[in-house]
Simulated scan of single mutants.
Amino acid sequence: MAMTLRLSDAEAEALRRRAELENRSMQEVARQAVREYVEGHSRADLIDQVLDEELPRYAEALERLGK
């Protein structure tokens, strides 16, 4: 799927410099950044969901451990 990504001049320049440093295309660097962002947030969302579901079950035990 193709898309257009609009960057500010400063963002485009930073991306260009990073791509040059890594000897990769700007597109490759941007795609990797998107993958890392999605994966990182997906993990955080999963952890939040598990905590929301499981924490109440152990609330009393955790409270006693905290004393």
Rank of each mutant, 00 (worst) to 15 (best):
R64L: 02
V34F: 11
G66P: 00
A19K: 06
T4F: 10
R35Y: 05
P56Q: 09
H41N: 11
A19T: 11
E13N: 15
A33S: 05
R43D: 06
L51N: 13
A61Q: 09
R31D: 04
Q32G: 02
A30I: 06
S8T: 15
Y58S: 05
R17D: 09
R6K: 09
R6T: 10
R43W: 10
E54T: 03
L15T: 08
N23V: 07
Q49L: 12
E22F: 11
M3K: 10
D48R: 12
M1A: 12
A59W: 02
V50S: 01
S8N: 01
A14E: 14
E63W: 04
N23F: 09
R17A: 13
Q27V: 09
R43L: 14
V38L: 15
A30M: 12
G66I: 00
A19D: 08
E60I: 11
L65Q: 12
R16D: 13
A14Q: 13
S25T: 15
R57S: 08
R17C: 08
R17N: 08
L7P: 04
L62F: 13
K67Q: 10
R64C: 00
Q49R: 08
M26H: 02
K67T: 08
R24K: 15
S8V: 06
E36W: 02
D48E: 14
M1K: 13
Q32T: 03
L15A: 14
S25W: 09
R6V: 07
D45C: 03
E11S: 12
R64Y: 00
D9Y: 05
V34Q: 02
M3H: 07
Y58H: 09
L7S: 06
Y37W: 09
R6F: 01
V50T: 03
R31W: 01
Q49N: 11
